[in-house]
Write a protein that binds this DNA or RNA. Structure first.
Lengths: 341, 341
DNA sequence: TATATTTGCTTAATCGTTTAAACAAAAGTA
DNA sequence: TACTTTTGTTTAAACGATTAAGCAAATATA
């Protein structure tokens, strides 16, 4: 039934009895082609329903007009929104994006990079999996000579552009807020210390306590994988302490949700007994009861800037990337889970 | 810093003093190439860190080994999970996928199809945007001679493969369950009638009522865009009725969440005053209180089958697709919002 | 009028790979 | 021994576009 009668520039050239070179130039609006010919070419191209073969032009020009995006997961509002905004920024310039997800797996992330390089993408925008420590596979991208732009989860060592929020300062904003609500023993269920963003949040937490002359109690600083289940577990540990905290700052919304469930089950009043703050502003923070105070990570801006950053590199043939950080101020969305007054 | 010193088969050929054809065949394990040569080629390829140029081979062979996926949104658990399983099924066969999102916009969906065809994908797996009524852009895919496989939101008129759950029967299962809980006036906040899956759910709802000898009250059957906000609005309409329903079956989880919020605000007891059932089994149905009964759509199976279906077509050069439906039984996950006993 | 420049096109090479066709050498068959 | 078949390789043409270089005709300049 289906016939692959794809029209090529040769077909157009034959109809008009001109060379394929003339057709190609006419379609690219070359100044050395007469208006008359251009008009005729465009007309015939439309009549024959000509669709340029991307593979051929990409092969010849060395530009695929494809950008690879790697995210840990697409089913988070943050990443989905960043992707959407990257797309918006690149589509206008004729680029299309290939989305891949690592599912937080180091191995999958390597496979994704290989697949993207294989597809000859012109650049990669990535946020790293939690598991990722070894960066050798990212060096492959640099070796391929295409720009790499990281966001949210990046690494200083990679020496490439990075876009993210100010995690260190976010912790300050959160602790400031909790202190203002009258909290004196603020616990922190943080992410993996080795992941830069979580480490920054931890440092911010420690320094903010100091700023407010609150003692740092090592028992109140806990490392977690930030899953909902682990949030429950780590909160239970905190409840088992002789001297319970009166506030918990959790470095991820899913874990914060686990905390919320546990506290509700044990009839511990939120925020009066224990105030709760999450991170990420996932939609469900606004759906549960009480609604969870959280941090908006500006997915819109991050996507937009990532796209813009790539576009700045695109014409340079001598790629020379250095660590350029684009740090955005995070925004605390105060909701019932921490509002005592 | 970066040098694009890409190794080609020509480089390998030069090292070994053989032709590029021999190298190409050796790398493809052609039976007419001696083991000795193959071994040597593989060795040199590795030494020079040879990476095949996908564009060149795709251009020559006419196969890009890329599959396009179009979904309304990636930030839903259902679609994200389907994508993951499509990927898994195709990766093993050397295919990579390009994910695009339509954001429920007809115009974006058209742009996505154009972009995918432009990239010379070997096939497209799609779930349609809510807005989509005109199918002309899908005909483009057929005209390109590549297989099109639809899932969840498809259209009979397209005459291509379809994978989804049995929406009609799902309504039966839900109504059966609600009747069993003692509900007598069951309302249905459904999706757009013109969208096939929502239409099937409506038909199932009507027939199931009949089966249980319950009267069909037109006031209790409402069309909605199934957003959280619209769920609230439509529920308020139901509450304004003289004779209120004692159960609401909502065709989407987000709308069901809106319903839940409204009922809680008005201190209407769930499930005792009004029982609630959603659709889609989004993670938050298990996070809110009370937890929402919902329908699991088997994203795992859908993705797996979509991939398998494509692979069955891939070698046929005379593509002849017909409407082949793959209908899965849905599973009702009963939670507190509808459990009276 | 003679020369230089511009205009508008063609020719042919090229991107990196695949593959049909050709062919020599080795091995098998009668 | 003479012919056929198999083995292992090469040659060269593609895939569909882009683009440097070339060239004739038209136009501008001196």
């Amino acid at each position: 039934m289906a016939k692959k009668n794809k029209t090529t520039i040769k077909d157009i050239a034959n109809v008009l009895n001109i060379s394929t070179a003339a057709v190609s130039k006419a379609l690219h609006n070359d100044s050395r082609i007469s208006e008359k010919t251009k008009k005729a070419v465009r007309q015939v191209a439309e009549n024959l329903n000509y669709q340029p073969n991307h593979l051929a032009s990409a092969l010849r020009s060395g530009k695929s007009k494809l950008i690879g995006v790697i995210v840990p997961k697409t089913n988070s509002n943050f990443f989905s929104s960043v992707i959407h905004n990257i797309e918006e920024g690149l589509n206008t310039e004729g680029y299309n994006i290939i989305i891949t997800q690592s599912n937080e797996s180091y191995k999958k992330e390597c496979a994704n990079i290989d697949a993207l390089l294989f597809t000859q993408v012109d650049g990669i925008i990535a946020s790293m999996a939690n598991e990722t420590v070894d960066l050798a596979h990212y060096e492959k991208i640099k070796a391929a000579g295409i720009p790499l732009i990281t966001f949210d989860r990046g690494e200083n060592d990679l020496n490439v552009d990075y876009i993210g929020i100010d995690d260190y300062n976010s912790s300050h904003i959160i602790v400031d807020h909790l202190v203002e609500q009258g909290c004196k023993r603020i616990a922190h269920i943080g992410g993996f210390k080795r992941t830069r963003i979580y480490n920054n949040r931890i440092r911010g937490y420690i320094d903010a306590l100091k700023k407010h002359n609150l003692p740092l109690d090592e028992e109140l600083l806990i490392e977690s994988n930030l899953s909902k289940e682990d949030g429950r577990l780590k909160m239970q540990d905190l409840l088992n302490l002789e001297d319970r905290p009166d506030a918990v700052y959790v470095a991820g919304d899913y874990a914060a949700l686990g905390v919320l469930e546990l506290l509700k089950e044990q009839n511990i009043s939120i925020p009066d007994d224990i105030a709760l703050v999450g991170f990420g502003n996932e939609p469900f923070t606004d759906m549960v009861s009480p609604k969870i105070t959280s941090v908006n990570q500006h997915s819109y801006e991050i996507g937009r800037i990532a796209a813009k950053t790539f576009l700045e590199y695109k014409d340079q043939d001598q790629l020379n990337q250095t660590l350029k950080k684009n740090i955005l101020e995070a925004e605390l969305i105060v909701r019932a889970s921490s509002k005592r007054k």
